[in-house]
């Protein structure tokens, strides 16, 4: 009997000493987190998109591809799809250009560099929702400080003014300004990340390569386009990936600024999915709209990661 107890005790100790068990326990929180918060919702959203589920109940009758078919000919959805690519593409382009310029500036030594670096990173430190509410006031149709500054400068608000006689520009309501405002805010919030990534890339270029290019008589732009940028392509890939994914999958900026208006002209996939699925109650339809993001983001991520890997090899 004593032997049996000892064997049992020994088996327990062996179990507690097992590397495999320790590894499983250490990795378990991450796996549970990913499965519970990403895997399950993702599978659920695929099922929802194939069903007629509503926010009113848990019944989810299978309807096949009906939700997707309904979207294909819907002009609002097509406009939304276009908007999503427009906002993401323009934001990406501007962030890459401005991020490169800012990173080049931050490479150099100058007085007050710490302050400039602090200011450049500041948008990244503020919660997105709060900073977008700040922008909402900046674009306010009555109290916009931008408009006030323009009026004070004589550019707005009187007959013959460069920007028109109206007292305000109506950033979120007039012509193409709502879309421009959305892109501006997206650039503002993602630029710090882009800058930091590009800066890391610039710092990673061996000094000897730069010096050799200088010795060979390469000017600034030649070094930029023929030395720095080619060597930074993997880093640029990361910047492209993060900027595009963050913008493509974001709904806060548009939800707070325009709620998809005027007249659905600034909806992106996330906001249209929310208004259709959650606010409107047609959860299955909303899930179908949101799922259109998946192939784009998956393909983009796969391509960029593959290119980066190939480049590194």
């Amino acid at each position: 009997m004593a032997t049996g107890v000892l064997e049992k005790y020994g088996a327990r100790q062996r179990l507690l000493d097992s590397d495999r068990l320790l590894a499983a326990i250490l990795i378990a929180p991450a796996i549970i987190y990913i499965v519970a918060l990403m895997g399950v919702p993702f599978v659920l959203s695929i099922y929802y998109s194939l069903s007629d589920v509503t926010t009113g109940g848990t019944d989810a009758p299978f309807v096949g591809l009906a939700n997707f078919r309904a979207l294909i000919g819907d002009p609002t959805f097509l406009q939304t799809l276009y908007n999503t690519f427009l906002v993401s593409g323009m934001t990406l382009l501007i962030v890459l250009v401005l991020g490169t310029i800012q990173a080049e500036l931050l490479l150099r030594s100058f007085r007050g560099k710490w302050l400039v670096r602090f200011l450049i990173l500041l948008p990244w430190t503020a919660p997105v929702s709060l900073s977008v509410i700040g922008w909402l006031w900046m674009f306010d149709s009555i109290f916009s400080p931008i408009d006030w500054s323009l009026r004070q400068a004589g550019l707005l608000g009187h007959p013959g003014a460069l920007l028109g006689p109206a007292t305000n520009l109506y950033w979120l309501g007039s012509g193409g300004l709502p879309m421009a405002s959305i892109i501006l805010v997206n650039v503002w919030r993602i630029l710090p990340l882009g800058t930091v990534i590009v800066l890391a890339g610039l710092n990673s270029i061996p000094r000897e390569v730069q010096e050799q290019a200088l010795v060979d008589g390469a000017g600034y732009f030649r070094r930029l386009f023929q030395v720095n940028l080619p060597m930074m392509l993997p880093i640029f890939g990361i910047a492209v990936l993060f900027t595009f994914v963050f913008t493509f999958a974001d709904m806060v900026v548009i939800y707070i600024l325009t709620r998809g208006g005027p007249a659905n002209s600034t909806h992106v996939l996330t906001t249209l999915a929310f208004f259709t699925g959650v606010q409107g109650g047609s959860l299955g339809q909303g899930a179908a709209i949101a799922l259109f993001m998946f192939p784009v983001l998956a393909a983009l991520s796969a391509i960029i990661l593959m290119l980066i890997r190939r480049r590194e090899v």
């Binding site: 009555i142 109506y170 950033w171 979120l172 309501g173 007039s174 012509g175 325009t258 005027p262």
Partner: peptide, 21 residues
Amino acid sequence: LTPEVFSWNAASNNQALIAGR
């Protein structure tokens, strides 16, 4: 009206009235 009405939220007409606009 003015183009501001395309960008209004639920509080905007209150604000406009109180602001004398």
